[in-house]
Design a protein around this nucleic acid. Structure first.
Lengths: 170, 170
DNA sequence: TACCTTTAGTTGCATCAACAACTAAACGCC
DNA sequence: GGCGTTTAGTTGTTGATGCAACTAAAGGTA
């Protein structure tokens, strides 16, 4: 197996902090959404993705890819969201293996209501803490890391939630 | 509540990618450790922290802080690790409310065995993908974010696992 | 058409984490 | 010393996630 290349002091410093962030950030993002709207972060992302899609509808596979989740996980989540009336499932007429998930009017209301809470968290925890230079550096870094974590670019790296929602809200 | 300040294109881009990383990184770190050693990432960090501590012993509260976890979570994890013979619990003689967790010899062997696997993942997923400049920028960014996520610096931001373990392995 | 393979999605089970309620020891104060 | 408060930790329950097994529809091939 060859010798292990241990981490230098600089590498270790950056890594330990990134590790701590990976541990703390998910919970910090969940909390405000959970308390104010009964949604966790993943629920919100799921609804937000649907809200942006044409017809507010996506295939399960596509939705899973855009939310960086596995299909079983998404399926469970959609079941819950369906029970709450936020999403509707229907088999595709073109290929009956395919399930189309559609955002309901209630679901739309829920995303619109939750969006400001979420953007607020993101600003407070991340964006507003960084200088413009850091933000630019962050893009380069995240691109590099996603090369390993999402090699086939299943996510698509396109734009997201906040923009469109704001457009409709006015 | 005032107007929501939506995200600019640059902010959105950085954020969406960071979000994806936060979603994908934990699983990517768990997998190799899980398959090769039956430990998840948090188990490993817990053992690693103990391995560095004087007497290989820490108070539960201190260990929870250093691993960015809540006390209940740590308690459950330590229960499992104790059942596997990796950790021993003992009440502190000085303050009998306090529980001291100590790494056993088997626990030590387990960390030493798992460390190369873990460092390998960290390099492959993160460190080796970044330039020296990016690594430096990352430190600044992580410091800024931890200001929000860990305001009291409970973690301590000291150095970690890999260094010490490598020292003893030779 | 019959059969095999691939693809899409769901379901059940086992694991893990969050939260709240609880126990017990120490501290402060009279 | 007695009593309320704070601190340290554990436990139980509930909810979410991952994985593997399963169903069902499509596609390909003879």
């Amino acid at each position: 197996m060859g010798e292990t290349r241990w981490l230098s002091a600089q590498e270790l410093g950056a890594w330990v902090k990134l590790e701590a962030i990976a541990e703390l950030l998910p919970g910090a993002l969940d909390q405000p959404l959970q308390r104010a709207h009964g949604l966790n972060h993943y629920d919100y992302i799921t609804l937000a993705q649907l809200s942006e899609a044409p017809e507010r509808t996506l295939k399960m596979t596509e939705l899973a890819a855009r939310t960086s989740a596995t299909l079983p996980r998404l399926s469970h989540v959609v079941t819950r969201l369906e029970q709450r009336g936020y999403v509707r499932r229907a088999p595709s007429p073109l290929d009956r293996r395919v399930t189309l998930a559609t955002l309901t009017e209630e679901g739309w209301q829920a995303v619109v209501a939750a969006a400001p809470t979420h953007v607020e968290s993101v600003r407070e925890l991340v964006i507003d803490r960084l200088t413009s230079d850091q933000l630019e550096a962050l893009e380069g870094i995240t691109d590099a890391l996603l090369g390993a974590l999402d090699p086939d670019d299943r996510i698509g790296l396109r734009q997201m939630c906040a923009k469109k929602v704001s457009g409709v809200e006015t």
